[in-house]
Amino acid sequence: MMVAMAFLVMSISMQGLAYGTKSNSCHVYRIPNVVGISLRNELRGSRENVDNWFRYMQHGAETVHSANPNILVVFSGLNFDLDLSFLGNKSVNLSFTKKLVFEAHRYGFTDLAIWEGNDVNKACGIVRDDMTSKTGFLLDKGFPLFVSEFGMDERETNTNDNKFMNFFLSYAAELDFDWAIWALTGSYHIREGTTDMEEFDGLLNFDWSGVRNPGFLQRISTIQSPSKPP
């Protein structure tokens, strides 16, 4: 129900959103690393459509801005945060400027059939075109793009994950967007009913005592520094 009601939850939670940003504003101002609020994670469900996206995202953004004008507002895309292509034909209409960020997610399993059904070069081309048409084009329009989730099985035993990561690191270096990796956690106390579940996509090992895959950490370090001027 929560999944299908994503936009409705946002529409009836504006007072709570405003209260949260106001009540925490002094605390947030004291922490320079807290720079923005993402309005909704991985939109999906029966109420997911472009009209609802514009209606509730813009409403939510104005609510956050009026409560705390010093933080960035982050907009996620449709279809599990994969698709912002509709912004090619219509722009967001807000009362403020220079603090809007768009975010996207991408994984190897997102395009599983493509990685499995094509040679690597063809698969890379297909996924590249899809990412560019749905999210990457925003950079050419002058908007900040934040790929706020990507990752892989760091045991490096998943062939499709390995193909995806080779592609993604090259694509990220070319477009020079900001990013955050899923995940830091090495394990969970309990998840999906399982105690001590290991997170094989996690940067840390099972007991959080060290890095799971130092080689992978070295690989992602290649896209940590900006490759283009602001």
Score class of each variant (00 low, 15 high):
Thr63Pro: 02
Phe75Asp: 05
Ala104Glu: 07
His65Phe: 11
Phe96Glu: 14
Thr63Arg: 03
Phe75Met: 04
Glu62Arg: 04
Gly108Met: 13
Leu72Val: 07
Lys99Tyr: 05
Gly108Cys: 10
Asp83Tyr: 01
Glu103Asn: 13
Phe80Pro: 04
Tyr56Met: 10
Ser95Asn: 09
His105Val: 06
Ser85Leu: 01
Val120Met: 14
Val92Glu: 04
Asn118Gly: 12
Tyr56Val: 05
Leu72His: 05
Gly117Tyr: 00
Val64Pro: 09
Ser76Ile: 01
Ile114Trp: 05
Thr110Lys: 02
Tyr56Pro: 06
Phe102Thr: 02
Phe96Thr: 15
Leu78Met: 08
Ser91Glu: 15
Asn93Thr: 14
Gly88Gln: 13
Arg55Glu: 06
His59Met: 14
Lys98Phe: 02
Leu100Glu: 12
Leu100Ser: 15
Leu84Gln: 06
Asn79Pro: 03
Ser95His: 03
Leu72Glu: 14
Glu103Leu: 12
Thr97His: 14
Lys98Tyr: 12
Ala113Val: 00
Phe96Gln: 15
Ala104Leu: 06
Phe102Ala: 09
Glu103Cys: 11
Val120Pro: 04
Gly60Arg: 01
Ile114Glu: 01
Val101Trp: 08
Gly108Ala: 07
Lys90Glu: 13
Ile114Lys: 01
Asp81Tyr: 03
Arg106Asp: 10
Gly108Thr: 00
Lys99Leu: 04
Val120Asn: 15
His105Met: 08
Thr63Tyr: 00
Ala113Gln: 05
Ala104Thr: 08
Ile71Pro: 09
Asn70Arg: 11
Leu112Ser: 12
Ser66Trp: 02
Gly60Tyr: 00
Leu87Trp: 14
Asn70Val: 09
Gly108Glu: 06
